[in-house]
Simulated assay, not measured.
Amino acid sequence: MAWSTREMAELAGVSLRAVRHYHDIGLIEEPERRSNGYKQYGVSHLVRLLRIKRLTALGFSLSQIADMDDAPDSGPDPRDLRALDAELAATIERLQHARAEVGALLRGRAASDQLNELPADADELTRQSLAERLVPYVLGLRSRHPGLSDLASDAPRGRQHTAGTLGKAISDLYNPAQVDVMKRLAGLLSGVDAPR
């Protein structure tokens, strides 16, 4: 069986550029050429290309693959596999942490959107539930932006004036149910922030 470069790339599911690059760095040996000058790849080339594709998909670098024994029944060095396994475990942990943060932001965003859409006649249970769902969102904001917790510290007219101004702005911008949710949220947060 003989294939052209394009046919072999298609069979292996890689780009022509990848095949050429593997030739350039010595991962795949140059095949014989047909009388018309075109390369003629055989089964051994395809097997090698599929192996390279599999090992790179696992996370091995091309230089690591070049250092591996090319025998069909051999595989990566167990030390390399353990190192790769540790690296993959760390990557999975980082991704799970990032996914948890994105989920919290989405839940918080949904809760903050619900606060903005809360009708003035919302019942007690809805108000309390919304305040509780906002706690993790606000705690996340505080951890990412610590200065938010003490906006009045640099105010020229003092904390009391700043608190009064914020209170007036909140009562002008939000309906009574929304203001009540914010008060409940402040109470829940003070319980979380209290020293133990």
Rank of each mutant, 00 (worst) to 15 (best):
L148D: 10
T162N: 11
S129G: 06
A163W: 10
A100M: 09
T165I: 04
G140N: 12
L134G: 01
D123G: 10
Y174G: 04
S153Y: 01
L106A: 15
V135Q: 01
A131V: 05
E124M: 05
V135R: 00
A131H: 02
L166C: 06
L105Q: 12
G167Y: 04
L148I: 13
A98Q: 12
S153H: 08
G140H: 09
A155Y: 00
A110R: 10
S171A: 13
L148G: 10
D172P: 03
G108Q: 02
A111Y: 00
G164M: 01
A104L: 11
R107K: 13
L166Q: 05
Q96L: 15
G158A: 11
Y137H: 14
P119K: 07
R159H: 14
P176L: 09
L148R: 05
H161R: 03
A152L: 01
N116I: 07
L148E: 08
R109E: 03
D123Y: 05
G140I: 04
T162G: 12
P156Y: 12
D154H: 05
R127I: 03
L118H: 06
L115W: 01
A177M: 04
L106M: 15
D172N: 14
H145E: 06
L95V: 12
L115C: 06
A120C: 04
Y137E: 05
A110E: 13
H145I: 10
S112N: 11
R99Q: 07
L115N: 02
L115T: 03
S143E: 15
A155P: 00
D113Y: 04
P136I: 07
E93R: 15
E124K: 09
G158Q: 11
D121H: 11
A104G: 14
A110S: 12
G167I: 03
A104T: 12
P176K: 08
D172Q: 15
A110P: 06
N116W: 09
R107P: 03
R133P: 01
T162Y: 15
A98D: 14
A152G: 07
A98I: 06
L173F: 05
L134I: 04
R133G: 02
R142K: 05
L151C: 04
D123E: 11
A169M: 14
L125Y: 09
P176G: 04
Q128P: 00
D123F: 03
A155N: 04
A169W: 15
A111R: 00
L130Q: 01
Y174R: 13
R99C: 03
D113C: 09
E93S: 08
R159W: 02
G108L: 00
Q114C: 02
S149I: 10
I170P: 05
Q114P: 00
I170N: 10
K168Y: 11
A122P: 07
G158K: 08
